[in-house]
Simulated assay, not measured.
Amino acid sequence: MNIKAIASRIGMDYDNVIEDFCGDTSEVRKKLESFITDCNFTALESAVEQNDEELIKKCAHKVKKTGEKLGLTDLVKYAAILEDAKSGKISTSFEVLKNEYNKISEILQKEEEA
C-alpha cells in the first residue's frame, strides 16, 4: 500500500499524519489496514436503524476519533456534524458520513487487494 499515493484520494492530511507518527509509515499503514475494524461503522449503522440517538452520538464520536488519527479531514468533519445533529437532521447527516466512509473503505480495500 502506497500511503502517499492514496492519501489525497481518501482525504488524508498526509504531512500531518506522517509527522504525528514520527515518520513511521509502517505504523500508518497498519492503522489504514485496521481502519474498517477500528471505526466499527456497522455499530453506527445499527444505532441509526434503531434510532438510538445516544448510541448514534457515541458511535459517531468513535468514527471521528478514528478518522482524526489518520488525518481524514472530511470524515472527521461529517462525523462531528452527526455527533452534534438534532433528531431531525440525523438521517441526512448519517448519509453524508456514510458516503464518505464508503468511499474511503472502497479505496483501502482495493489497495489491499492490489
Rank of each mutant, 00 (worst) to 15 (best):
F94I: 00
I6S: 03
K64W: 03
V96S: 07
C22G: 05
E68I: 08
E106T: 04
E100W: 05
S8N: 12
K65N: 14
I81D: 12
E54D: 09
L70V: 05
E19N: 12
V76M: 07
E68C: 04
G23R: 03
D38L: 09
E27T: 14
M1Y: 08
L108K: 05
V28E: 09
A43M: 11
F94K: 06
M12Y: 02
I90S: 11
E111P: 00
S93P: 00
V76N: 09
E83R: 06
A5H: 07
L55T: 09
A47G: 04
K103T: 12
T37W: 15
V63W: 06
N2T: 04
E49W: 12
K62D: 10
G11P: 04
D15K: 09
D15N: 10
H61P: 07
N16C: 02
S34G: 08
K57C: 02
E100I: 05
T73M: 09
A7H: 06
N102L: 14
E95I: 10
T73V: 12
Y14D: 05
S105E: 12
A79F: 01
E45G: 09
E95N: 10
S26F: 11
S105N: 12
A60C: 05
H61A: 02
L97T: 03
Y78W: 13
A85P: 00
G71P: 03
A79N: 00
L97Y: 02
R9I: 08
V63D: 01
A85S: 15
E95L: 14
V28Q: 13
S105V: 10
K57G: 05
G11D: 09
T66K: 05
K110I: 06
D52V: 01
D20K: 13
N51A: 09
A79D: 00
V63E: 04
G71R: 10
E68H: 07
R29M: 11
S46M: 15
Y14R: 01
Y101M: 00
Y14V: 03
K62M: 10
F35Y: 04
E54H: 14
I10Y: 06
E111S: 11
E83G: 11
S8W: 07
I18T: 08
